[in-house]
Design a protein around this nucleic acid. Sequence first.
DNA 1: GCTAACGTTCGA
DNA 2: TCGAACGTTAGC
Length: 874
Amino acid sequence: MAMSLSADDEDYDSDTAEQQRLPNRPKPKMAASTATTPAATTSSSTATAVKLPSNRTSSGARRRRTRCRKCEACVRTECGECHFCKDMKKFGGPGRMKQSCIMRQCIAPVLPHTAVCVVCGEAGKEDTLDDEDEKFNAMLMECSICNEIVHPNCLKSGLLPIQVKDAAGVVNDELPNCWECPKCNYAGKTGKACKQKRGPGFKYASNLPGSLLREQKAGRDGREEGDQTSTCASSIKRKSEREETPRLKTEDLPSRLPPLLSPSGLPRPRSEVPNFLRKKRKLFDDDEEEDEASAKKKPKKPWRPEEPLIPKLSHMKTEEEEDNSDEEEERQEKQEPPRRSFKKDYSTVRKEEEHEKERREERDPPFRSLKDFNNYRKEEDQEEEKEDDDEEEEEDNNGKRGRNSSPALKNISLSLESDASRCSSPRAGPSSEGSETQEKAPRARAKRHRRKPPNRQLSAELSKQLNMEIRRTEHSLANENQQPLKSEPEDSENEEPKRGLRNGTAGNGGGVERGAGGEGGGEWPHLRAREMNGTSWELRHFYPPQITPLGLNRSSPTIRPLPARSPPKCVQMERHVIRPPPICPPPDRLPLADGRNHIAPREAWLTIFSHLSHRELCVCMRVCRTWNRWCCDKRLWTHIDLKRCKSITPLMLSGIIRRQPITLDLSWTNISKKQLSWLINRLPGLRVLLLSGCSWVAVSALCTSSCPLLRTLDLQWVEGLKDPQMRDLLSPPTDNRPGQMDTRSKLRNVTDLRLAGLDITDSSLRLIIKNMPVLSRLDLSYCNHINDQSVNLLTAAGTTTRDSLTDVNLSVCNRVTDQSLSYFKRCGSICRIDLRFCKQVSRQACERFIAEMSVIVPFQLQEDKLLQKLHSTP
DNA sequence: GCTAACGTTCGA
DNA sequence: TCGAACGTTAGC
């Protein structure tokens, strides 16, 4: 951060005396107190632009921001493990670093309570108002350039040149109460718009010792190096150019967004790339390039004091438009030799992504749950070769401005069209202007409208970047979920808490299966063909977790999935800042274009959404901001299914976190330990975790004190999972924080444990018996070491499993004999015993068991050697 | 006055 | 360019 800051500082100060500063000479402090204010340096530019009240506290002296105290990070307790915690005296450190715990770094630092408007000297007054426009005008806004804190209203009514008043304030989405004030904007100042902290998490997440970021740095650094040198000079030039450029009207704002190349063809200076984006690249690296690509031109929202600030349904449209303009700019730039380092960076990243995309396309079936969505996706896919998600949509929409939105929307049986068309109509644009202007005007207007009152603004700020990710994630999730074949084993997912709205998806494995099922199984002949010709890897992957012993090649499960050429981004998720869902609750009503709210409340919409598949939800999320939030309601995503998804990307992880599923299926993925660790640390409500076919290395991420209290754990065919590993898994975590000595296993609440195909012995069973007192369903099929003695152990007097076990699967356990059946008679709650394909179990023994048990509990042979309690449906 | 920690500097 | 250090602010 320090470096980015300094780079920006130089840019920002390039036309001031600061410019003369000798290298390495300490910069004047930018302290907040008036006593230490170096106003001379930092306010000079402001002062020259606009006359300011002389009593201002600190023109140029930025107020230190402080915790919001509300965000997820703020309400956490210190982890006690991070670099900064270890430095703290309370954790036995020297206390020199004086930094907040990594896990507690506020994502939306706010202005201090003592901050006041430099014009009127009063604090923010938005709380006293209801009207959203008024709220904005009455809240304190800190200019990221001149650091002035003002009420927009005070600026509006202040003694400013009319041109300045006409200038747009540019709201910074990244930080609450942050903008580029109309004065600075009018003066053409740019530069450190995003230099301000996005929260310490952004500052340090990538810098942590041991961060995998470092692995990526060399290449990136190489890419970025070049532009550093020219920053200063070019920024000066840019500034002078800008100052020569006549000020554009607000209606022209979209076109005013600077192209990547200046009209003169000079490379746009790096300094115009908002600093936070550079930082974000560190955080999200290439995953975020779409953010960069778009946000580098639209991280801020133009605003004019006299304009209302009404959120509209047109958000999505607006974003598309913005993106479209971005795209045009990018295309424009593509015609030029890439000279700007940022672009170079971006291109490189883009190439990587395209590469990944190609790979993905090779293996992913096309969308198909909705016919038109299929078309939509086709179009998208064509575009995707060159453009990322957002941009591709724009491409798709190019020349179809009058259209409501994506074609898919038309096919979602939700009567949104009128809303959408209304909001995309150019009604509010100056009628005298050409059609293009008419199109741009709403865009600018919508940008302004995105401005929200403080809490909503914060929420929007938090969610905006996330939304970008999410929109990608939606596709990833939806695409990856398109794995054909196989119906999800019913198993204990059915037991998951029925908190979901969606009866259709949560219970049956999500909309994926539903969508696939609904479309019929024969729709992907190409894939089917591929599967039929499957390699052993594919065989293994498409082998249903549900036991179907016939034809099973015992050796096949031992063939590991080919290590997916893991995208470099996979290892970068450490850089993902934890961004919790927006703090404020999602809006209860859908804002319409005319400023009113849609009649249906959120819950009604959610009921509708609950009937959609995940894929369809992903489409809906692209409609508008409100829908985006609504569709992310965790009730709609109780079950997230990524099984057989070859590569889990950071964006997918972010998407998972945002949705906070109860059930997460990562079976047969190549998820890494770090990824899984990252996930489970952020999914405290996770109850069902399916990791069959993963590696023990990844699964070992569960050996932590932050492991959620799972009820279902599927570890079938986990490579390398044997007795010692089971011991690690079942033992109480050793990474408890000081004073947090929980000696119980984190898996103590597991009721459904699936261990099929593992080379575990009785020693693991003893641990299970000891540490899983409520275990009800146990799948030990294909466990060659399981024998009668194992059953004896499980059903021995004094064990909890004796009474808790209801369903035991010992199919294809060749060491199990008839003797086991006699042990099972001890189990008071047993309802189902699966002994299919146990060579040493005879049908006669089963019948004898049934006969003897019938005195107490009636059993039947549902299949050969499959004993099922009558009237029970385990 | 104390603690937490933000924002900056500076050495490596 | 990064990370450690620390002055100083903000909150209580």
